[in-house]
Amino acid sequence: MDKLLIARGLSKVYPGLTRPAVVGLDITLSSGQILGLLGPNGAGKTTSLAMLSTRLQPTSGELRIEKMAARPHKRLVRQRIGYVPQDIALYGDLTGRENLLFFGSLYGLTGERLPKRVEQCLDFVLLGKVGEQQVGTYSGGMKRRLNLAVALLAEPPILLLDEPTVGIDAQSRSLILESLATLAARGNALVYTTHYMEEVEQLCDTVIILDGGEVIARGTPAELVAREACANLGDLFLKLTGKSLRE
């Protein structure tokens, strides 16, 4: 299988701090794979995603997207990555369709391809009938689905998803998880962060657990659960990261 994303020894030390936010993160992601990136608050998930999305420059390490080094080919690399932020990163005063038209044009879609792709994405997340409504009138689940649709506009082979199901109803969550599984089946590679362990068990082929910026576990969910003799991934997570509250 084609290796779509290769990260080697990604580390980040923020200016003025001595303790690194992320240390030596290695990821290799092939077509159709879904990687779950787990960790308590402050573990380094957001920093890792920021480096993988090229928003943040790593202090050391290397990132390659479809064999292209990320740093010198930032624009091309960004074209190949779809990013779903944790926030509902949409314009509430624009309609769903207007949001997609705007973001689609930023991905370089032009001419007839743009509205065609917008309709495909709206249909994919089952929002075709409400495309003319302002996003501010959408329910939380509809906004989450549109948030995902924006990331799909350029048909990127890699998707980075930062807690895409947080705070929504069961039906929308189910739809999003099904959509992600469909995308993986079509050959997309996904990096998925969440605090819902059952989602990871349901969706991910591989799991990386981060704590204090370091990788403390890596493997398939079944392997990890078996290795630590836990009942499920949730128990495993608490066993490895402890029960003390994180700020």
Binding site: K74, R78, Q79, Y83, D87, A89, L90, L106
Partner: peptide
């Protein structure tokens, strides 16, 4: 505040 800026910052523009 809505995170749209974060999304714009990873766009190929």
């Amino acid at each position: 505040l809505t995170g749209t800026l974060g999304r714009l910052l990873v766009m190929p523009v």
